[in-house]
């Protein structure tokens, strides 16, 4: 049975330890479990541009280990900004962010780089280096571990690293494409390579910013199923943004809806249905 067919067999499950701790009714916000560590803890996060455009207006969110969280909301609601602020790809204006126990805003350059190495980030666009081979692109996921040219191009990489990159490619079903130029792949294949690159990081937590928004519905469904299944298999915490309400309900344990830079809904997906979430887009 392939990875994709396993995913198609049913809705991805959440980590068993967390499932018992956090299932709550529609308006219930999960309490911090005594047994499951909080991996992402955001408090009163604010981000605005030029003092007039407020993107995030006091967002607070705690995500325990093993949980899968979908961030939904209309364009400009602050979903992508929230994820980027967590890794300081965008500097927030206020509030605090604790990621894997680290105070993100207090980290110096080196410590921030080491923290980022533990977080996989799948972007809306695959962001591969088109002129390089698929294998070199996957290998880049290990750059925080391997310094210098050994982590830049597969021809210079140690055999063990090349084998690990091939394994990651195999997990996304693209081992046969290792030697091909990345810009010769389809959109769906490219996004699967981007997922393989994050797996190469050996991440403890995964962010995904509308990972299938640039794909056609069929490819998007396939990539999302594969992605969710890999996350489930590895027991990773996942925070992803999406415009697909059905993806949020199907692939996330918890749905957080943003509206105007604030949290509008925060509830377990099992207690929601699509009608509860459509209002977010009105």
């Amino acid at each position: 049975m392939t990875v994709v067919s396993v995913a198609r067999a049913g809705k991805p499950r959440i980590a068993a330890a967390y499932a018992a701790a956090v299932r709550r009714p529609l308006d219930g916000v999960p309490a911090r479990s005594a047994t499951v560590a909080i991996e992402l803890d955001i408090s009163n996060l604010r981000k605005s541009y030029q003092a007039t455009t407020t993107i995030l207006d006091g967002v607070s969110l705690a995500v325990p280990g093993g949980q899968s969280v979908a961030l939904i909301g209309s364009n400009g609601a602050g979903k992508s900004t929230l994820l980027r602020c967590c890794l300081r790809l965008i500097e927030p204006n206020g509030g605090s962010i604790h990621l894997l126990g680290e105070d993100v805003r207090a980290l110096d350059h080196g410590a921030l780089r080491r923290l980022r190495a533990q977080i996989g980030f799948v972007f809306q666009r695959h962001n591969l280096v088109g002129q390089l081979s698929v294998l070199s692109n996957v290998l880049h996921g290990a750059q925080a571990r391997i310094s210098g040219p050994r982590g830049w191009f597969h021809c210079m990489a140690p055999s063990a690293l090349r084998d690990e990159a091939m394994h990651c490619l195999d997990l996304v079903g693209l081992a046969d494409f290792a030697g091909r130029r990345a810009d010769q792949l389809s959109g769906g294949q490219s996004q699967r390579v981007a997922i393989a690159r994050t797996l190469m990081q050996r991440p403890r937590l995964m962010f995904a910013d509308e990972p299938v928004a640039s794909l056609d519905p069929s490819a998007g469904e396939e990539v999302m199923e594969l992605f969710a299944e890999l996350i489930r298999q590895q027991g990773l915490t996942l925070v992803f943004t999406s415009h697909h309400i059905n993806h949020a309900l199907r692939f996330a344990d918890r749905v957080v809806a943003l509206r105007g830079g604030r949290i509008d809904i925060d509830a377990m997906s099992a207690s929601l249905d699509a009608r509860d979430l459509r209002g977010v887009y009105e």
Binding site: L87, L89, R113, R114, L115, R116, A117, Q118, I119, G120, F121, F123, R125, N127, L128, V129, Q131, L132, S136, H140, G141, Q143, A144, S147, G148, P149, G151, W152, F153, A194, R197, T198, Q201
Partner: peptide, 23 residues
């Protein structure tokens, strides 16, 4: 985009230059 992706995964500046910008 690729530069942001490598920044996000903890790559050093030299890694970003040689494996994303120069190619």
């Amino acid at each position: 985009g690729p530069q942001e992706a490598l920044t996000a995964l903890g790559a050093r500046k030299s890694g970003i230059v040689f494996s994303a910008v120069l190619p």
